[in-house]
């Protein structure tokens, strides 16, 4: 029993160290997407909610577990979708600038959604 908790503690400590190392220096443009992305990752709590629902019995436990599954799904699905939307704004290459005045204004007129 106590070896079990020790194993989990080991995993916990190692994961904490990895979490600290892995993100390193993040440019400030990525602070928001990184926050949003890690927000999605802890949505994996859905796995826990599914497990708990499996063993829940009685109206009270089932209701609470149902809520847990619902909330966790919101977290994981919404989290990943929102992050992807943020990141699709980062185009791989800067757009070429049109050299002539008339071209540029034409581009802009069509390029800006009304």
């Amino acid at each position: 029993m106590s070896t079990g908790i020790l194993e989990f503690l080991t995993i916990f400590v190692l994961a904490a160290l990895v979490g600290n190392e892995v993100i390193g220096r993040v440019p400030s443009i990525l602070h928001t997407p990184l926050m949003s992305g890690s927000n999605a990752i802890h949505g994996i709590v859905l796995v826990g909610a599914i497990l708990v629902m499996g063993s829940a019995s009685g109206a009270m436990q089932v209701t609470l577990a149902f809520l847990a599954v619902l909330l966790a799904t919101l977290n994981i699905v919404g989290g990943f979708v929102v992050t992807d939307r943020m990141l699709e704004m980062f185009k791989p290459k800067p757009v070429e600038r049109a050299p002539k005045a008339s071209d540029a204004s034409g581009d802009d007129a069509t390029g800006s959604p009304k």
């Binding site: 989990f8 916990f12 979490g19 990752i41 709590v45």
Partner: peptide
């Protein structure tokens, strides 16, 4: 509480990197 490695790892990763962020 659930003895689930994945939740421990994912949660701790976010917890630790989140503090740093």
């Amino acid at each position: 509480t659930l003895n689930n490695n994945l939740l421990i790892i994912a949660g701790t990763l976010v917890g630790a990197s989140g503090i740093l962020l």
